[in-house]
Amino acid sequence: MKRFDYARPADLGSAIATLAAAGDGTRLVAGGTTLFDLMKLDVETPGRLVDINGLAELRGIDTGGDELRLGALVRMADAAEDTRLKADFPLLSEALWKAASQQLRNMASLGGNLLQRTRCAYFRHGEPFACNKRNPGSGCAAIDGANRSHAFFGGSDACVAAYPGDFAIALIAMDAVIDVEGAKGRRSLAIADLHRQPGARPHQDANLSPDEIIVQIRIPANSVGRASTYHKVRDRESYAFAVVSTAAAVRIEDGVVADVRIALGGVATVPWRARSAEQALIGRRLDAETAAEAGRIAFEGAAPLNHNSFKIELGANVVRDALIIAAGRA
């Protein structure tokens, strides 16, 4: 591992000043379960680390007012167990406890979770494989290589790496907002605008500047989150990234769908909202047939690679099942 220097600022203002003064090659570290992992592989090679675990401003879960606020340093395990999350947003709790292991969830922060990097084996492995995300301009070994776990939505000629996280899939279904603070002050962005599709610059995962720190995640209070699920299909029963997953939430009024949210994991370069499938359900009864139809619509327009076309049928079934599970919680 490359040598690095380490600083641990005591509060948010100091952390921003530390980042601003440090310049290029500086990274933030929270739980370290993505960053330290990739540093051991020499995929990430920062010369300086700024440890944000001392920042009290990034802690705590707060349900006051008309939104739920989750500090960026809240650990996955703690958010997963939160009774308010379990009651009002079961999809959020489920997306957390179905991710990683309890050891990792005790360490990993929600902010770090959003910014975890792809599990593309060529990206992680390094030389001799080409990878535009790791080494811009070198090519992409996955497009004609082993791409079973890669994305068929949102990819480009430069990169088809799947976004691996679960929590952001559930958050995008709830229209969450991210508050960030940097040298230029504080701003808010929709979770849908946090992650970047690779386009011609796959090395840039997120729409954040290097001096910006995620402070908190806000979820607007709503009446659709209660009847919800995060349905995750894996190669083994537990402790694996999603092959395909669906965050689904539904509100039924007078026997028909009044509001529905569908988001997909494991198949896209960014958290993926299936809006046309949602649209197709509004005003209709939710039953096995309409749920299956929504599943098919969710995967229309997929551009499958050599090894992942099976996820179109599998994914449609996962969406169908997720909708039925969510409706059963109403």
Binding site: T33, K40, Q103, L104, N106, M107
Partner: peptide, 26 residues
């Protein structure tokens, strides 16, 4: 050494963690 197997599990302030993924300075 990458958080994947659990063989390195210890408790930090009573919580189980993967010690291979824990920066000792933390």
């Amino acid at each position: 050494d990458h958080g994947q197997c659990g063989a390195c599990t210890v408790h930090v302030d009573g919580r189980r963690v993967a010690s291979c993924m824990t920066l000792a300075v933390q």
